[in-house]
Amino acid sequence: MRPKISLWLAIVVWFAVITQFCLMLENRTASTAETIIRFFSFFTILTNSLAAIYFTVQAVKPKLLHKAGALTALTVYITIVGAVYQLLLRHIWEPTGLQRLVDELLHTINPLLVIGYWYVYEKAGELRFKQIGLWLLYPMAYLIFILVRGSFSNFYPYPFIHVAEIEIRQALTNSFMLLLVFIVTAAVFIFVGQRTSRKHLWREGF
Rank of each mutant, 00 (worst) to 15 (best):
K4N: 10
T75V: 12
N174F: 11
Y142K: 02
R90E: 14
L64F: 10
W202R: 07
W202I: 15
I166S: 08
W118M: 07
Y77F: 14
R203F: 02
V120Q: 01
K130L: 11
W8A: 14
T35I: 06
F155K: 03
L64K: 11
F176M: 09
E165D: 14
M177C: 14
M24D: 12
V184I: 15
V114Y: 01
A187N: 04
N154E: 14
R2Y: 06
I132L: 04
F40D: 01
L180Q: 07
R203K: 13
H107S: 10
F145Y: 13
T75L: 09
I168K: 02
W202H: 09
F182C: 13
Q99P: 04
L136S: 02
A30D: 13
I166K: 05
M1T: 13
L172R: 00
N174I: 13
E34A: 13
L98T: 15
T185K: 05
I37A: 08
L137Y: 04
W8Y: 15
A73I: 11
L25Y: 04
E122K: 05
V148M: 08
L179P: 00
F129G: 04
R90N: 12
A30F: 10
L201F: 10
V120G: 01
R128S: 12
V192N: 06
I161T: 12
E104W: 14
P62C: 11
C22M: 14
L23R: 02
V57S: 01
F39W: 09
F191T: 14
L74S: 06
T35F: 03
I146P: 00
I36D: 09
V102R: 04
T35C: 05
A70H: 10
S175V: 10
T19I: 13
P95L: 12
I78Q: 02
T72M: 06
S6R: 02
G150Y: 03
F191I: 10
V120M: 07
H107I: 11
F155P: 02
L180T: 09
L113H: 01
K61F: 14
I166T: 06
E167R: 05
S197F: 10
I190P: 02
M140G: 02
I80V: 15
T79L: 13
I161K: 01
G150D: 05
E204H: 06
M24C: 04
K130C: 07
A141E: 01
L172T: 03
F152G: 00
R198S: 09
P3G: 07
Q20M: 11
F155T: 03
F40Q: 03
